[in-house]
């Protein structure tokens, strides 16, 4: 096991109301809060985890989905190691907008090789019975748009949430092994302050 903890930055993008904040909160605090406010501005939470023997601190960034706030959220795209494109299976518009989210991300995150950048697609709210987007359609989109992994999640029922975030970590680690960098230069910046939690056994 490597003694190093890498800090990975992932960002949740998708239309307003698809459940980005709920997914983040479910994953980090294991709670689903029906009283949650819609997001204004930008927030992030950290979570430590181990994936395939790698110690990782996942820094999850959550933004406001409304178009108007683009200029606020886009500066935070830089330095992301992975982007979680999120839609809600009961909202076909949020599915149709995914292409735009992806483009916005690639543009503002200044991704050098978009084909190689890890995206993970999340179809949230699978607990809802009135679906507007079928799993096949979603899978097809993922296939056609860069072969992204697809997860059907429910922040409410805690379906596949951890699996989706862990997949994100795997994708990042895989890319990094390929490029023989353990940590992106940008994440080094984020790691500027020494963390107290790097010791192996706690």
């Amino acid at each position: 096991m490597s003694g190093k903890t890498s800090l990975l930055k992932v960002i949740l993008l998708g239309d307003g109301g698809v459940g980005k904040s709920s997914l983040m909160n479910r994953y980090v605090t294991n709670k689903f809060d029906t009283h949650l406010f819609h997001t204004i501005g930008v927030e992030f939470l950290n979570k430590d985890l181990e994936v395939d023997g790698h110690m990782v601190t996942l820094q999850i960034w959550d933004t406001a989905g409304q178009e108007r706030f683009r200029s606020l959220r886009t500066p935070f795209y830089r330095g992301s190691d992975c982007c979680l494109l999120t839609f809600s299976v009961d909202d076909s518009q949020s599915f149709l907008n995914m292409g735009n989210w992806k483009k916005e991300f690639i543009y503002y995150a200044d991704v050098k090789e978009p084909e190689k950048f890890p995206f993970v697609v999340l179809g949230n709210k699978v607990d809802v019975t009135e679906r507007q987007v079928s799993a096949e359609d979603a899978r097809q989109w993922c296939q056609e748009n860069g072969n992204h992994p697809y997860y059907e999640t429910s922040a409410k029922d805690d379906t596949n949430v951890a699996a989706a975030f862990e997949e994100a970590v795997r994708r990042v680690l895989a890319t990094e092994e390929r490029t023989e960098h353990l940590i992106h230069t940008d994440t080094v910046n984020l790691q500027r302050r020494p963390r107290s939690t790097t010791s192996c056994c706690s």
């Binding site: 735009n100 483009k103 916005e104 690639i106 543009y107 503002y108």
Partner: peptide, 8 residues
């Protein structure tokens, strides 16, 4: 405007 209008 939307990002696709822009050069990358």
């Amino acid at each position: 405007q939307s990002p696709e209008d822009r050069p990358h």
